[in-house]
Design a protein around this nucleic acid. Sequence first.
DNA 1: GCGTAATTGAAAATAATTATCAATTATCTC
DNA 2: GAGATAATTGATAATTATTTTCAATTACGC
Lengths: 146, 146
Amino acid sequence: MKLTANKIAGILREQGYKLTPQRHAVLKVMAATHDQLTPEAIYERARAARPDIGLVTVYRTLDLLAKLDLVCRIHAPDGCHGYMMRRPVDHHHHLVCSGCRTVVDFAECSLSELEEKVSRETSFDITGHLLELYGLCPECRTTAVD
Amino acid sequence: MKLTANKIAGILREQGYKLTPQRHAVLKVMAATHDQLTPEAIYERARAARPDIGLVTVYRTLDLLAKLDLVCRIHAPDGCHGYMMRRPVDHHHHLVCSGCRTVVDFAECSLSELEEKVSRETSFDITGHLLELYGLCPECRTTAVD
DNA sequence: GCGTAATTGAAAATAATTATCAATTATCTC
DNA sequence: GAGATAATTGATAATTATTTTCAATTACGC
Ligand SMILES: [Mn+2]
Ligand SMILES: [Mn+2]
Ligand SMILES: [Zn+2]
Ligand SMILES: [Zn+2]
């Protein structure tokens, strides 16, 4: 059950949020690609369908979608943020290509043991984690060798 | 062998970097605390010793220290960056208290297996990772309950 | 002391995000 | 289908974090 623009639209309405054409434009942009996009890039694309949309509304819509766990946020090491439609519904992490920024989701998250151990050793109450892997995808690896 | 301001000063000189009073002021600030500090906060403190120092120089010095692996950079989930003197010299990660921002270093990094598995499954060449744990330290946990 | 390349700080530029607020509008009610 | 209303929007300005530019300064080897 992949998330589509319409499916998300239904979820928004269910949750009591208005279904505005601006929000729908953002949803269509997000559903149309598997790439991570910056708010600015999403704004550019959404303007094709709705030239009057404001960048602020894109930010607001992304915040809303993130709050509802409908989009994933990618934390590049340099601090920029990319957004993409959430693909696996359950807990997962991201492998990001340093060349082309492609994102692969992976679910293997062997952190609960680690968290328990660290929690025991530090007496911290551990509530979450941030894990991302970086590397080169097969295509970018080839290019890099050329 | 803990890193002190003077030890780092020696390393800088060894590497051919000039030992300016501005850099030394930043080093002293970093050596004087175990807290993570923003560039702005480091700037404020460094001004006590050297009122004429510029914020730009703080940024430049932090970049230099990070390049030489002498400071650690903390990536808060919201995108802000904190810096602190590097304590364990070898590879490690950070557990950050969401209450008081205290950072605990931990070395257990059970990611090589995971990386190999993901690498095999995705054909990516994995070159690095970002891992941080978040939680509440014992003191902040107590406060939260009050 | 001198020469020189590295370093510095003021100022402006850039980038990413957030706040303000009056005007608009999606949706509920009749 | 209108009317009420609270949510939503976009222009604009404000903030925040960082980087660039460039002329003046300075640490350090000779
Ligand atoms: Mn994802
Ligand atoms: Mn550290
Ligand atoms: Zn790639
Ligand atoms: Zn704490």
